[in-house]
């Protein structure tokens, strides 16, 4: 996957979550419970699932858009993660394999 495609997906995840929240809210207030508009309370505004989803999408956008810019500017080899070792026929099935903790250290600048 090219850096640009990754950046696009990263940048879109916040707006997508927001869009689902907006659609949910419109369905709830416009279709499933249109008469409930007169009974909206502060509690519903703050804790309504659709509203929270919109808020989450907004915060995701704030965090992910700068990441998307960095990813778009990165080289493809910078984005590849080190693959952990995979089991071979000689390794016992339930002994497990250790993903090297050093793999995380490789990501440190």
């Amino acid at each position: 996957m090219s850096p640009q495609v990754r950046a696009l997906l990263i940048g879109l995840i916040g707006p997508l979550v927001q869009a689902v929240g907006v659609a949910w809210d419109l369905l709830e207030h416009g279709v499933f419970n249109p008469g409930g508009l007169e009974q909206i309370t502060l509690q519903h505004i703050v804790s309504g699932p659709a509203h929270l989803m919109m808020g989450v999408g907004m915060v995701l956008s704030l965090i992910c858009i700068p990441i998307a810019v960095q990813v778009a500017a990165a080289q493809p080899e910078e984005l590849e993660l080190p693959l952990p070792s995979r089991p071979t026929e000689d390794e016992p099935l339930f002994e497990g394999r250790s993903e090297p903790a050093e793999a995380i250290e490789q990501w440190q600048p």
């Binding site: 990754r6 990263i10 965090i63 990441i67 960095q70 990813v71 990165a74 993660l81 990501w107 440190q108």
Partner: peptide, 10 residues
Amino acid sequence: VEILAGPVWH
């Protein structure tokens, strides 16, 4: 996003 961004995230 962490998977998509790879080492950039870290």
